[in-house]
Design a protein around this nucleic acid. Structure first.
Lengths: 169, 169
DNA sequence: ACCATTTAGTTTGACGTTCAACTAAGATCG
DNA sequence: CGATCTTAGTTGAACGTCAAACTAAATGGT
């Protein structure tokens, strides 16, 4: 964002007001939830990416790097990465392209299946992953702007939403 | 997304596990919150955009259209739109470009300030805004996947997060 | 064995978002 | 009045995301 002096009111509360005035009372809470999540996503992503930028990473690439770092062998098929991070195959291709360009990951052929490509984290990749995780922990995750009880409530509620959306189990 | 059979476990719960095993207990809840919001954003946006696609709209453009529809005069300066929706000026330019291309909005010169451009919603724009709002209400907002009490909790917690991030007041 | 189907990745194109650089016009002040 | 901010929008480049089309390789049924 750029020219951001804060608003004098909560724009989402205003939208709820508008929704109720239009007679859409039943939909107002859902609208508020969707809008809140959209805006919170924007805020958190901005913070995360700002922390990661000095390291030459983005959150999307960081997630791939950590996934590979945590995997025992340090290498996973592209498709597996997409499933775990729940993103489109094209997004995985994009992320791996950039990570490979920076020498943090290398593409390897699968030993038995000629269709699949393995993404393998490099030494540099592991080093940067650890540094990035520490930066993110202290810069963002350690204090996310609301107290622990609320954090847990939100995480639990969103887990249920994700579950109902067919994300897992 | 494309090849989506559900995972057999919650990938975010797994990530929390990994974080704790790495000794990053203090950061684990924050990491879970950020990741949950990212993924929920993805799910909700996909649902919203799928509902809006038959109408030729996206959520970004829908928000602009509703903002103009709710404004009494039906027209607002570009900058005002960006402030209210909390997006970058370039995003407003982009959205208005597409809305104007489709005849839903028209750019007007400001009567006294030669720098500012007003975006004015058209008759077609108002018609489509109403149709889109109804579609979204019944298709997404009326049932967002978690019960009303949880919705309110999440909205309240995220309002506090947004407030602490300097979004408003 | 062979042809049809499925699966894995990549490529291309459309959208949205941001930042940086740039143009134009209003506001300030000596 | 003129030189210098400051503000409003636009443009172009970089990223990320997805869908659709396409290639290549494995599977399966007859």
């Amino acid at each position: 964002m750029s020219s951001r002096r804060p608003l004098s009111f909560d724009p989402i509360a205003e939208a709820v007001e508008n929704w109720r005035n239009a007679g859409w009372d039943a939909a107002a809470p859902g609208m508020a939830l969707v809008t809140s999540v959209m805006r919170t996503h924007q805020i958190l992503l901005a913070g995360v990416d700002a922390t990661l930028a000095p390291l030459g990473l983005t959150f999307a690439r960081f997630e791939v790097l950590m996934l590979l770092d945590f995997s025992r062998s340090g290498r996973l098929p592209m498709g597996k990465i997409g499933q775990r991070l729940q993103v489109h195959p094209a997004s995985v291709t994009n992320a791996i392209d950039r990570l490979e360009r920076d020498g943090l990951v290398a593409r390897r052929p699968h030993p038995t299946d000629g269709r699949t490509t393995l993404a393998a984290i490099t030494k540099d990749g592991r080093r940067l992953a650890r540094r990035a995780a520490r930066a993110l922990n202290s810069g963002v995750f350690d204090d996310v702007g609301i107290d622990g009880a609320q954090v847990d409530q939100v995480v639990a509620a969103l887990a249920q939403l994700r579950h109902n959306a067919g994300d897992f189990e």
